Computed example of a mutant assay.
Amino acid sequence: MSTDAVGGTLDNDGWKNMWDKGETDFHQSTFDRFLDLRKAELLGENRSVFLPLCGKTLDIIWFYNHGFKVSGVEIAELAVQQFFSENNIECKVESLQTVPGKLYKSIDNKIQLYVADMFEMTPELCGQFDIIWDSKAFVAINRSDRQKYINTLVSLMKKEGRYYLASIDYDPAVWPGPPHSCPDKVIVSNYSGRFNIEILKDADEVMKQKPETREETPVQKHEYDTIQSAFQASSYLLFRWYKMTLK
């Protein structure tokens, strides 16, 4: 699939190009607030975590500092390089043998970030994990790839593991994605076949309350230069977390 900005799709080269150009408004300058909110729940005996489409998120540092073995995958090598350099973590790099890509590892091997295609990840390559930490990764995936994405993550999840997913719900008329607007019905329709789903409403970040009706026709995406400006134009904006376990 090729990149189609108007249609809301990005291929691997499109994502790498965004990192090369510094168009990374989606990157957060701190770790997700949900980590501290659910800290007691997350810090169980089994502490291995996998972050799909991890970029250079500081969630990695939070998990690392709390004793987790952290793995992630990111197609843009620049993002992984910046993660290690900006956090002053010495790393070693090796080429992957079974799929195209590289593995960046901290010296203590507790952080392992794969520069590879998300859909190339297998248990044989990277193992299976106690926690899948999907902090707005599903919302970045092209709609046509969603089931393949879920199947990949199911294969990387231990049978008794937990899958935490963060979504965004906004008026899709103002921005085609990514990130895509994913209200509850989208999460349920894509995940309910494989997962038990718990909506963690206590963790909601309601930036703008969703109205019962919308009278004004929103301006289309081409009127906005950034996702932030589109979010500001949306009549509603909600960040929501879900906790899922395998059926």
Rank of each mutant, 00 (worst) to 15 (best):
Y104V: 03
K243R: 13
K39F: 06
A203I: 02
Y224G: 09
V73G: 08
N142V: 07
I89T: 03
I197T: 08
E212D: 09
S48G: 05
A40F: 07
D225Q: 15
M18S: 13
Q232Y: 09
P211I: 15
F63T: 02
Q147C: 06
N65V: 06
E223F: 15
A166C: 10
T9A: 07
N65F: 07
L37D: 12
E212H: 06
F239W: 14
L165W: 00
P179C: 12
D169R: 01
K110V: 04
Q220G: 11
T30V: 07
L156D: 07
H27Y: 09
L200E: 02
G127H: 05
G14A: 12
M18F: 14
D13T: 11
F68P: 00
E90C: 05
E215T: 14
S2G: 15
I199K: 07
S135F: 00
D225T: 15
I199N: 04
K159I: 13
H27E: 10
L78A: 08
D36A: 07
F50V: 03
T30D: 10
Q128V: 14
R240G: 00
G101E: 09
S155N: 15
T30M: 06
K243F: 01
D184V: 00
L165D: 04
V115E: 06
E23A: 12
T226N: 09
I111H: 01
G101L: 11
V80H: 04
S181D: 10
S48K: 05
E86M: 06
F129I: 03
K158S: 04
N12E: 14
I75E: 09
D204V: 06
C126D: 07
G161V: 03
G127R: 05
T217M: 12
T245K: 10
E205Q: 14
A137W: 00
S29G: 09
L10H: 09
V93Q: 09
A40K: 11
T213L: 11
G8R: 06
F119R: 12
E215H: 13
Q220I: 10
V49L: 01
C54M: 04
G193H: 04
Y224H: 15
G8F: 02
K158T: 06
D20N: 14
G177H: 04
N46P: 00
M157L: 15
Q228A: 15
D204Y: 13
Y170D: 08
K136V: 07
Q232F: 08
D202V: 02
P183Q: 05
Y104R: 05
K110C: 07
S29V: 05
A137L: 01
W133D: 02
W15C: 08
K105P: 06
G161C: 07
L37Q: 15
I197Q: 08
L10A: 10
F119G: 12
A79I: 03
D145W: 08
Q28G: 01
K102R: 15
Q232H: 14
P211K: 13
D108N: 09
T98R: 09
T98I: 11
Q209G: 04
N196A: 06
G193L: 00
